[in-house]
Amino acid sequence: MPDTFKRIDSYIAGAYWGARKETPEECALRAEKFLKAMINIDPAFARWFQQGKSRKDALKRVIEPSLPSLEKLIRRGKDRFFDEIGYSVWAWNGALDDYDASGFNFCCGGYGEVRSNRCVLNLPTRGPNAERVLSAPVLAEVVRSMALAWEPETAIATSTMHRDTISATGVAGTYMSWVMYFPREQGTVPPLPAPVRIEPVEDKGTLVILTPEKLTADNPEHIDLAQRVHPLLEKAGLLRTVSS
């Protein structure tokens, strides 16, 4: 197939958790911790902008990673009709090339039936930012920052094409991702085959890094490794859907 018709893989990092009623201030504290940690991970994550009517308009709407500014922004993200849905914020990093841009959305404080608490980061796919960011060390730090800031039930970073190849549902926490976070209360990560790495996240939980290489769906070794690790984590009770 000609290169012009090849599907470009996309990569995401995300943290997901169940019902947790939190105030705008509590959500802002988490967002501040997350954004300040991201500044130190890569220049692509150093500045964020609110959505605007145009690219030019958005670049005027800088998001300050401070508690007062974030709390004000989060209060504006409250659902007009349902308090229990919580608060939602969208952001973009200002990269001129859409393929090399990043953006995130977080929903925090939801506690009713109609809610989805999460922080999802859309990663660059090609370009200078992508060359730096799409690596195991960087994504491990991204997932670590999500785990410490949001205290989720699961957090991942992965290729969406790899996800679609190995998972029938694509539900986060139920399939083996490039990087996965497991909170300590969910159980102990068992010994896993090389080249999988296991790293602690302070006293909160554990990171599992599937491969030090860039994870892709067209590498049969990456598919095979995920399929070998999956039953080991499933037997340990670590692969599960987010609670409702």
Rank of each mutant, 00 (worst) to 15 (best):
P137L: 05
L139H: 11
L139C: 12
A140Y: 03
A140N: 05
A140T: 09
E141Q: 15
E141P: 00
V143A: 00
V143P: 00
R144N: 00
R144W: 01
S145Q: 04
M146G: 02
L148R: 09
W150P: 00
E153S: 03
T154R: 01
A155T: 03
I156M: 08
A157K: 05
A157V: 10
T158Y: 12
T158W: 12
S159Y: 00
T160C: 04
T160L: 13
D164F: 07
D164H: 08
T165P: 01
T165W: 09
S167W: 08
A168G: 15
G170W: 13
V171E: 15
T174D: 02
Y175S: 09
Y175W: 15
M176K: 10
S177T: 02
V179P: 00
V179C: 06
V179E: 14
M180N: 12
Y181L: 02
Y181H: 01
F182Y: 14
P183F: 10
P183N: 10
E185V: 08
Q186M: 11
Q186P: 00
G187S: 08
V189H: 12
V189D: 05
P190V: 06
P191D: 13
P191A: 05
L192H: 14
P193A: 09
A194Q: 05
A194E: 12
P195C: 08
P195Q: 09
P195N: 08
V196D: 04
R197C: 02
R197L: 13
I198T: 13
I198K: 13
E199R: 13
E199D: 15
E199G: 12
E199V: 14
D203R: 12
D203Y: 00
D203S: 10
D203L: 04
K204A: 15
T206W: 09
L207P: 01
V208D: 12
L210Q: 07
T211S: 15
E213I: 03
L215F: 03
A217L: 02
A217S: 11
A217H: 09
D218S: 13
D218C: 06
D218Q: 14
N219R: 13
N219S: 15
P220L: 06
H222R: 11
D224R: 10
D224P: 00
L225R: 12
Q227S: 11
Q227D: 11
Q227P: 07
R228D: 04
R228P: 00
H230R: 13
P231N: 04
P231Q: 05
L232Y: 10
E234R: 09
E234D: 13
K235W: 11
K235N: 08
